[in-house]
Design a protein around this nucleic acid. Structure first.
Lengths: 274, 274
DNA sequence: ATGTCTTTGTGAACGCGTGCACAAAGATTG
DNA sequence: CAATCTTTGTGCACGCGTTCACAAAGACAT
């Protein structure tokens, strides 16, 4: 999951709940597949199964868009594809810039799922002068200096940040200053943006960490009996009071020493207090 | 947002809400940054700002883990890093396989954020025999035939799928059969898995689509007046009854024509079984 | 035209997550 | 030791999202 809506407390834009908006692309994908198989209509039950959701939820979601179904029959696939596309704004062309052409940026540039949904990669930007001119995904990488010209010339309003964490905020600020109002952030940092700018983030390692949590829980349940977290580790309830005081000794031995190392990003200490 | 927990209706494992679990990695990242700057303690206010959340929410989240703060002072950074790491299961080593070494798979293999969090890339797998032996991220790509040996030898319980959509379910089934119980899916498909297997998905294009929705809404608001979706388009309320019948005509004119084209998309399978 | 059968659309209940606001707890100062 | 100040931990209320369950609507058969 790419998590994270930032700002805009409970945006229920035009009556369509955020949760529903987040599912529309899923329905669209399932519908597109049906469309390619020339399936004329689907029931909410079938479509829900294809999209991996509850059928009641799907019907309620669609009810926010209007009454597009026919009782006793189901939904017309083509028509629904069009309605959802329009609702999501995919009937128009969205020029996009990708900033930071490292491994991930290059992968994004090559990703077919963008172009097929109306997202046109207008430019690939990188701060490294050595990258300039290099072709990635059949398109020359351009230097950051070109950013302003590119964005204004193409009318770009959506930017993708795939830079290292350290550069992300700076890039973000520049994009926003140039009029970009939607940002998809792959850098592991919290971006601060002014009111009116939407940020969504995708953090690859966060997803793995969430899986690890559940994995640990599963392993713990089958190994030992109780609901304990890790087997053979003291329960988390105990070290309440001694926490803060005891911690004073920690930095000496532990992770503080690691802070010198220039790792790829933040990480977990090898040794810990208490 | 990489969204998407599948299965497990309302998993509140061991009393820690899912929403809280999803935020722990964020806190951890912020705390690690503080740790590297040798900051000894933080208040909930400061940490919340660094993690991009509400301070009340943060305190409540931490309260599920136990009472790790000191009133009037704040939280001990090192200690909290340890507690969260342990809770997430990051104090142990998680061998991971990445299946599908295309652009994205290669980017994932090179991503530093995994290794630094206790995730060890045990192997890179690809179905293409031509890829076998090629070094990616300083590690030879191995053929799918090796999958069983690799997984059992390394005790892999987490798999990352970065294959084209068409191959994802098949790969998933094989992983599950070999004992993998957590899957991070980058392929744009809904994976069906048996009870007890966790799937999280990251769909790059979904995030962009959600941004496009909001972007369209923003544009619509400033251009025309009303809360209408796209300017100069009939409101969605009208075509209620004629929806299904009229839909037959829709594909001709509208974007429905798009369905025919077999895009460069890695996305929807061109053909698929019923 | 009438009745039956299928499937939508939605009212209502429930549960989770969020945020407020404050009491309790400890540090700190005089 | 008492008073004050800071910050945590949480009870409570509210709103969003999910799910159930059913009436309304239309297709289809007779």
């Amino acid at each position: 999951m790419a998590t994270g809506r930032t700002h805009r407390p409970a945006t229920r834009s035009r009556g369509i709940p955020e949760a529903t908006v987040a599912r529309l692309p899923l329905y669209l994908r399932a519908l597109t597949a049906l469309s390619e198989r020339s399936v004329p209509t689907v029931s909410s039950e079938e479509l829900a199964a294809a999209a991996g959701v509850n059928s009641a939820k799907l019907r309620k979601d669609f009810s926010y868009l209007g009454s597009y179904g026919t009782r006793g029959v189901g939904y017309d696939v083509e028509y629904l594809v069009y309605q959802i596309s329009r609702e999501l704004g995919l009937t128009q062309d969205w020029p996009v810039v990708i900033v930071g052409i490292g491994n991930l940026g290059a992968a994004l540039a090559n990703y077919g799922g963008f172009a097929s949904r109306g997202f046109r990669v207008a430019a690939l930007i990188d701060a490294d002068p050595a990258m300039a001119g290099k072709p990635v995904a059949g398109m020359p990488v351009q230097h950051t200096d070109e950013l302003e010209r590119i964005i204004t010339d193409n009318g770009v309003s959506i930017g993708v940040i795939a830079t290292p964490a350290g550069a992300a905020q700076q890039v973000c600020d520049r994009l926003v200053a140039l009029g970009v109002t939607s940002i998809l952030n792959f850098a592991p940092t919290v971006l601060s943006v002014p009111e009116g700018v939407d940020v969504r983030k995708v953090d690859l390692s966060i997803e793995l960490q969430i899986l690890a949590f559940h994995e640990q829980r599963k392993a713990g349940e089958e190994t030992s009996a109780g609901p304990g977290t890790a087997p053979a580790v003291s329960t988390p309830a105990t070290p309440a009071t001694p926490a803060a005081p005891a911690a004073g000794a920690a930095p000496a031995a532990g992770p503080a020493g690691r802070s010198g190392k220039g790792g790829p990003d933040g990480d977990v200490p090898a040794v810990m207090p208490a």
